[in-house]
Design a protein around this nucleic acid. Structure first.
Lengths: 148, 148
DNA sequence: CTACAGGGTTGGAAAAATCAACCCTCTGTG
DNA sequence: CACAGAGGGTTGATTTTTCCAACCCTGTAG
């Protein structure tokens, strides 16, 4: 009778998706990354419905990824900026951009360039050993134990 | 007069999301990356409803990210594997995993380790200049012109 | 004969996303 | 003053997705 009931795998990929995995969220973050900070412009550039955009911005704000800043009183006007946590989503955007360029047949889109002028071509290396990261090696380790 | 009608930004991030951006898709790809290839196990490990999983696998297959392989006749049984395109989604998974570990308060999850034994800590560098990639620099360049 | 593995499909209920229209505060124009 | 536009949303009705539980089918094990 020990019904183990098989919970889904708890992992940080799922945890990330719980924050930014809803429809439109990543495109909103893309716009903020590109320096577009206002509701109307974000709405136009992403194509998200206004009500959904409103809801996503609130969600991202409550998750600490986005900050709302008053830039004018009378009438109050806000703009949205990435927090540090939001800024660190950049590698995700870059990886998505690169994959899409390589594996989708978008031909009319803009190209992503690195500041050096070269077309986006990322290398992902392990900060510890310097080796290229190829495998996905999951190991269970409960981090709460290091908190004494 | 000239109604520009402001189409949303065409970009490869959006193109990628059109392929893998639906709910559960990335978790399915995570499982395949981890070597879990069968319907039931993917269903248990992700927590996705069976009908949705079925629909996602078909979608990913038709997008060329996943391949369905018969591993037994009588009764016919299939397993799912990543194609080369699917395999190259790995950097996206890794970036998501890393961000989640740093910015979400998941404490009971497993940790991702590189094969060298160190905890996941990625460096993203430009293959051309070797410099760390920090900016997101979008430039319009129509690629169809180089196809003569 | 019954149970279980494996891989799904089906129908109905619940939740999300979409769309169009509206609201509110100002500022600028005639 | 009246009206339009910028900017940032909200509201209500409709359509799509998701979710859930139950079912189906083939074959093996007890």
């Amino acid at each position: 009778m020990s019904e183990v009931e098989a919970a889904p795998r708890a992992c940080t990929i799922a945890a990330s998706l719980a924050v930014i995995g809803e429809k439109w969220s990543i495109l909103v973050i893309r716009e903020l990354s590109l320096g577009v900070h206002r509701f109307d412009a974000i709405q136009r550039n992403t194509g998200a419905p206004r009500d959904i955009l409103s809801s996503r911005l609130r969600r991202l704000e409550s998750e600490g990824v986005v900050e709302k800043q008053l830039y004018q009183l009378h009438p109050p006007r806000y703009e949205y900026r990435l927090t540090e946590a939001g800024d660190e989503l950049r590698p995700i955007l870059l990886s998505l951009a690169e994959w899409g360029a390589r594996w989708t047949d978008e031909t009319t889109h803009a190209t992503w360039l690195h500041e050096c002028g070269a077309e986006l071509d990322l290398k992902h290396t392990c900060a510890a050993c310097g080796g290229e990261v190829t495998g996905l090696d999951l190991r269970r380790r409960h981090r709460s134990e290091s908190a004494a």
